[in-house]
Design a protein around this nucleic acid. Structure first.
Lengths: 240, 240
DNA sequence: ATTCCGGATATTGTCGACAGATCCCGCGGT
DNA sequence: ACCGCGGGATCTGTCGACAATATCCGGAAT
C-alpha cells in the first residue's frame, strides 16, 4: 500500500516506531475487542504496569485515543472508555452519512475501472457468503465495501477522518447490536446500487445512494439497540 | 453559554485547569496569529523555555495540536506548523461543505424562532458594515454567521468537529488570501438565502444553499490564493 | 568540484520521582 | 438512620535526567 509522505498518521496498522505507538495500537485493540468495556476506568499506573512501560508513553497513547474520541479524558480525573449513548450514536451517523456521501461522490469521479471491477467481484463473493449464512454485518464484509470506497475518494483528510476516527467508533458500536434476519440481503442490494452509480460515473447519484444506505443502516441499527431509553446516566463503575 | 458535562473538550476558550491547557491555547494563538508561520519547526526545548515550563506539558499540547491537524508530528523528527497546500485546502473545503450542509439542515429543524430573529438582526448589522467597508470576510462577520448555524445544529460532535478542528484550519488559511471587491455583498446575499431556508423550516433547501455557499466561497478563495502551482516541496526551513 | 561517509551535536522518546488534586472511607452531628 | 465533614490513600500533572535517534558538519575518496 503506497503511503509516502502522504498524511500524518495511520490508524492501528501503523508501524510502531515508538513505544507510545505500540501502546496506542494495543489499547485500541483492547477497547475495540471489548476487553476494556465502555465506561471502564483507564488507570495510568495499572496500564503502565500491564504494558511494562512508564507512564509517559502511556499518557501519550491515552491522549491520542481521546482525540479520536475512543476515550474521554477529564483533567485530574483520568480517562475512561467512551460510552456510546443513543444520542451520540445518532450524531455519529449523521456525520458519517455526510462524509461517506462525499466519498462516494468522489469515488464516482476518480475510481479506476479496474478497481470498480475488483469491487464488483468482491460483492459477488459477498453474495455467496450472505446466502450461506445471512451474517453479512457480523463479519467485516460491510467494512470491506466501505473501505474500498473511502480509499478511492482521493481525499486524504477525508479518508483519515473516516477510517482513523469514525470507523473505530462504528466498530465499537457494532459489538452492541444484533441485526434481524434479512438485513444482510438488503445491505448487499444497496451496495450493488452504489457501485452501479459509481460505475456509471454518476457522482450525484452515488452520493445519494450512499447517504440513503447509511441512513437505512442507522434505522436498522436503531432497531437492534439494547435500550432506546433516553440516556442511561453515567453509572458508578465498570470493572476491567 | 450552557456547557455542562456535554462533550469532551472545547477549543481555545477552555479554562486552563492545567499547564498543558494553557500552553495549548497559547500555541494555538501563536499559530493562528501567524507568529509561528506555516512550516516553522516547533522545538520542544525552545518552546518549553519560552513558556517557562518543562517539556512534559508542552509535548502534550503539541500532541493535541497534531490531532487537530494544526501541526504535523513525525516520530524522532519533531513537530512543524502545518503547511496548507492547495490540495489540502481543497480537501478541507470538501469536508467542510458536507459537514456544514448537515449543520444547516439540522438548524432548519431545531433553531428557535428567537434565535432566527436574532440572526436576521445580525445580518442586517453586517449589511451596514459591508456597504461601509466592503470588508466582510476580513473581519469575523462571516465566522459569526456560520458559528450561529453550527451551534444551533444540536449535534455536539459535529459542532466540536467543525469549531475545534476545521475552523482553526480555515482561520489559518484566511491569513493567506485576499478577496476581490464585491465578494462581501455576494456572501451576505447567500447568508440571507440560507437563513430564509432555515426560517421556512426547509431542511433540504437549507442544506443545498449552505453547500452552494461554501462551494462558492471555495471558488472565490481559489482565485485569491497566492500560488496555484502544484505542491511547493517541503522547503528547507522557516524561522520563528 | 562533487559525492559519500563518519563523528559530534542537538533533539526527541522514555524513565523515575515529587507536588497538587481528587476520591474514598470513617467519624461525628443531627 | 442519614447527611456533612475531615484525613488518608491514590491518582494525575509536572519536573529533571538519561538513552536512543536524527541532523549537521567536516573530511576523504572519486
Amino acid at each position: 500500500m503506497p503511503d509516502g509522505d502522504t498524511f500524518p498518521s495511520g490508524p492501528l496498522a501503523v508501524v510502531d516506531r515508538t513505544t507510545a505507538d505500540r501502546i496506542f495500537a494495543d489499547l485500541s485493540h483492547l477497547i475495540l475487542s471489548g476487553d476494556l468495556p465502555p465506561g471502564a476506568k483507564l488507570s495510568e499506573p495499572d496500564l503502565a504496569a500491564r504494558f511494562g512501560t512508564s507512564r509517559a508513553p502511556l499518557r501519550e497513547a491515552l491522549r491520542r485515543l481521546a482525540e479520536r474520541k475512543l476515550v474521554t479524558h477529564i483533567a485530574h480525573q483520568g480517562a475512561r472508555v467512551i460510552r456510546l449513548t443513543p444520542a451520540r450514536i445518532t450524531e455519529i451517523y449523521q456525520i458519517r452519512e455526510a462524509l461517506e456521501g462525499v466519498a462516494a461522490r468522489e469515488a464516482a469521479l476518480r475510481m479506476s475501472d479496474a478497481a470498480i471491477a475488483e469491487l464488483r467481484a468482491l460483492l459477488d463473493l459477498h453474495a455467496g457468503r450472505v446466502s450461506a449464512s445471512d451474517r453479512y454485518f457480523q463479519g467485516t464484509e460491510d467494512d470491506d465495501f466501505h473501505f474500498r470506497i473511502i480509499h478511492a475518494c482521493g481525499n486524504e483528510m477525508l479518508t483519515a477522518l473516516l477510517l482513523d476516527e469514525y470507523y473505530l467508533l462504528i466498530r465499537l458500536l457494532r459489538r452492541q447490536i444484533h441485526h434481524p434476519a434479512g438485513v444482510a440481503q438488503r445491505a448487499l442490494i444497496e451496495h450493488r446500487r452504489i457501485l452501479d452509480a459509481i460505475a456509471d460515473r454518476a457522482p450525484d447519484l452515488a452520493e445519494t445512494m450512499m447517504r440513503r444506505h447509511i441512513a437505512a443502516a442507522f434505522t436498522r441499527l436503531r432497531a437492534g439497540l439494547p435500550d432506546t431509553s433516553p440516556t442511561p446516566r453515567p453509572r458508578k463503575e465498570a470493572s476491567a
